[in-house]
Lab assay of single mutants.
Amino acid sequence: RRVTVRKADAGGLGISIKGGRENKMPILISKIFKGLAADQTEALFVGDAILSVNGEDLSSATHDEAVQALKKTGKEVVLEVKYMK
């Protein structure tokens, strides 16, 4: 599913991630910080795999590559996510 997140002037997306190619895992949302941008969408969940950020494929990204992709986003971020059981 596709989720658009609008960041506030102060603060980032409000998520922590884990996983990555070096761990043989997808990039997973490991924490959502209450009240910040990702939480306010009410459409992102701990355990979601982030498949892409603004069209940039993260399916084979390392953890560091995913962190950089998320950091360089502007005010509006489009995440392609899939819930992983």
Rank of each mutant, 00 (worst) to 15 (best):
R1Q: 07
R1A: 01
R1W: 01
R1S: 04
R1G: 00
R2C: 09
R2Q: 09
R2P: 02
R2Y: 10
V3P: 02
V3N: 00
V3A: 02
T4V: 15
T4Q: 06
V5A: 05
V5H: 04
V5L: 13
V5S: 02
R6A: 11
R6Y: 15
R6E: 10
K7Y: 09
K7L: 14
K7C: 12
K7M: 13
K7A: 11
A8I: 13
A8T: 15
A8D: 14
D9F: 12
D9C: 13
D9G: 14
D9L: 13
A10W: 12
A10D: 14
A10V: 13
A10C: 14
G11P: 10
G11A: 12
G11I: 15
G11L: 13
G12K: 10
G12N: 12
L13A: 02
L13D: 01
L13G: 01
L13F: 08
L13P: 02
G14I: 00
I15H: 03
I15K: 03
S16M: 13
S16G: 11
I17H: 04
I17Y: 00
I17E: 02
K18L: 10
K18A: 13
K18E: 15
K18S: 15
K18P: 02
G19H: 00
G19F: 03
G19P: 00
G19V: 03
G19R: 01
G20W: 01
G20V: 04
G20N: 01
R21D: 02
R21N: 00
R21M: 08
R21H: 08
E22P: 00
E22A: 05
E22W: 01
E22G: 06
N23Q: 14
N23S: 11
N23W: 14
K24P: 00
K24I: 00
K24N: 14
K24Y: 05
M25Q: 12
M25F: 00
M25S: 13
M25T: 10
M25C: 09
M25Y: 11
M25I: 03
P26C: 03
I27V: 08
I27A: 04
I27F: 00
I27Q: 00
L28F: 15
L28R: 07
L28P: 01
L28G: 04
I29K: 03
I29V: 07
I29W: 03
S30D: 14
S30C: 09
K31S: 09
K31Q: 10
K31N: 09
K31H: 12
I32G: 03
I32D: 04
F33C: 14
F33H: 15
F33P: 08
F33R: 12
K34T: 11
K34C: 07
K34Y: 04
K34G: 07
K34A: 10
K34N: 07
G35E: 05
G35N: 09
G35W: 00
L36S: 15
L36D: 12
L36Q: 15
L36P: 05
L36H: 13
L36T: 14
L36F: 11
L36E: 15
A37K: 07
A37Y: 00
A37Q: 05
A37W: 06
A37S: 08
A38D: 05
A38Q: 05
A38I: 08
D39K: 03
Q40L: 11
Q40M: 09
Q40I: 07
Q40S: 09
T41A: 10
E42I: 00
E42G: 15
E42S: 14
E42T: 07
E42H: 15
A43E: 12
A43K: 13
A43V: 04
F45G: 08
F45E: 12
F45Q: 14
F45I: 08
F45A: 12
F45M: 14
V46T: 07
V46F: 04
V46G: 04
G47H: 02
G47W: 02
D48N: 06
D48Y: 00
D48F: 00
D48P: 02
I50C: 05
I50A: 02
I50R: 01
I50P: 06
L51E: 08
L51P: 01
L51N: 07
L51M: 11
L51D: 07
L51C: 08
L51T: 09
S52M: 06
S52G: 08
V53R: 02
V53L: 07
V53G: 04
N54D: 15
N54R: 01
N54K: 03
G55H: 08
G55L: 03
E56Q: 15
E56I: 13
E56T: 14
E56G: 06
D57N: 08
L58E: 01
L58P: 01
L58A: 02
L58R: 03
L58Y: 00
S59D: 04
S59C: 10
S59R: 15
S59K: 12
S60Q: 13
S60V: 09
S60T: 14
A61H: 10
A61S: 08
T62M: 02
T62N: 07
T62P: 05
D64S: 13
D64K: 12
D64R: 12
D64Q: 13
E65F: 06
E65D: 10
E65K: 05
E65A: 06
E65L: 03
A66I: 00
A66G: 07
A66H: 05
A66Y: 03
A66V: 02
A66L: 02
A66W: 02
V67T: 12
V67L: 13
Q68F: 07
Q68V: 08
Q68C: 10
Q68K: 14
A69K: 11
A69M: 13
A69P: 00
A69L: 13
L70G: 02
L70W: 00
L70A: 02
L70D: 04
L70M: 09
L70Y: 02
K71N: 15
K71C: 11
K71I: 10
K71E: 15
K72Y: 11
K72D: 12
K72R: 14
T73L: 08
T73A: 15
G74T: 10
G74W: 04
G74A: 10
K75I: 08
K75D: 14
K75C: 10
K75T: 12
K75P: 14
K75V: 09
K75R: 14
K75F: 07
V77E: 07
V77M: 09
V77P: 05
V77C: 14
V78I: 07
V78D: 11
L79N: 06
L79P: 07
L79K: 06
L79W: 02
L79M: 10
E80I: 08
E80S: 06
E80M: 08
V81A: 05
V81R: 05
V81E: 06
V81P: 03
K82Q: 14
K82H: 06
Y83A: 15
Y83Q: 15
Y83F: 11
Y83H: 15
Y83V: 08
Y83S: 15
Y83E: 15
M84F: 13
M84C: 14
M84Q: 13
M84N: 12
K85T: 13
K85W: 10
K85G: 15
K85N: 12
K85A: 15
K85I: 10
